[in-house]
Design a protein around this nucleic acid. Sequence first.
DNA 1: CATGATTAAATTGTTGAACAAAGTATGATA
DNA 2: TATCATACTTTGTTCAACAATTTAATCATG
Lengths: 222, 222
Amino acid sequence: MADPREPAPSPAASLAEGVAARLRDQVTGGALVPGQRLSEARLAAELDISRNTLREVFRLLTREGILRHEPNRGVFVAVPSMASILDIYRVRRLIEVPALAQAWPGHAAVARMRAAVERAGALQAIPDWRGVGSANMEFHAAIVALTDSPRLIQFFTQIIAELRLAFGLLDSPELLHRPYISRNAEILGRLEAGDPAGAARMLEDYLTQSERAVLEAFARLG
Amino acid sequence: MADPREPAPSPAASLAEGVAARLRDQVTGGALVPGQRLSEARLAAELDISRNTLREVFRLLTREGILRHEPNRGVFVAVPSMASILDIYRVRRLIEVPALAQAWPGHAAVARMRAAVERAGALQAIPDWRGVGSANMEFHAAIVALTDSPRLIQFFTQIIAELRLAFGLLDSPELLHRPYISRNAEILGRLEAGDPAGAARMLEDYLTQSERAVLEAFARLG
DNA sequence: CATGATTAAATTGTTGAACAAAGTATGATA
DNA sequence: TATCATACTTTGTTCAACAATTTAATCATG
């Protein structure tokens, strides 16, 4: 495997979806700054697609919450707010904790959780903190995958994208991601030891602490 | 007020969103049958919009789950399955029960709940069972609104649309909606009496029973 | 100088036509 | 009947155009 960061070069069913994925990465990766306006004409030329196709892309990403559409004014990269972060963590608690609590330790998603933990560990050594952040998010996406609920999984994917958008806004990624590598490992260990309820309690602590850290970093921006 | 069924003739920010709302109603209202194919050319002519705009509409509704898009083959009205109904009720339990349990009885959404109950009662007298179903769904949307979480509210709106799509597939709407008018009223009464926890327990029973009824009706179709 | 109204420029919203690519139906042939 | 080549239909995508709206620039006026 060449680069452990890139999850999968999915075949991009249609051009619009492919471009959407590319743009999504650019946004969550920080290449596009929150609040920035995305001119249809300019971006279409830059991406080498037509305006119509780009508009389809905009519709997709707007509904995902990482772009904002103001009628007759244009499309902007969404600007995370304190309120949105609070909302996101609330949703995370509501979904992740029960998902883990009712997990069957033999579920296939447990392997995904373990892979994510190991990837985070490897990227920590480079160090690539943004990569660590991605791996940590993947860990939590895997937790939701434990539910086998397509709707929850898709919804949570959105939530994660929004959260990564907020992360991109903050500096000091090491502080935001480093402490949670071992914490994820502990949660996973407890689950594999056959104690989902205990793992869920640890996860709840994790979320509370992570939320506080993010909010503090956010407050430091003014 | 002329017709208590129509919630609000929203100003339709853009043409695409307006048409999306119209199509959504046609689908959840049963005018478009699940599995039916939506030809771009024909439907665009019928709705008197261009193919490009219709495609934007398709993207919106596909992401909402009420249309399905097969690359190079076309767009179809989504076909509810037993699995999707199970998933939907699981999500409902996960979101609605905690939402109600932690509700503050003075919240503005309580008024929405009461309005929905009263509307259902009125429509029962006509009788308009499809309308009763809509009112019941509005009751539960109001429960989620108790959380003040934009993300949960938007997500739940989707879930409701999908469920109404499934309802449209089933016959005997009276059997599916009638029993729940009084049940909703009881839940509301318990909440207004200052016992959110008790109301939440009643809601849980409600969901279990409703799920069973829907699944049975679904099984009768073969 | 500031301010508000008027005009000009740029951008979005939407359409229609066009064509390549993929899928579907048709029909000839073995 | 089964199979394969062919014609037809539909989707995927682009392009050019124009109306509607917003933004910027201009300018008169207190």
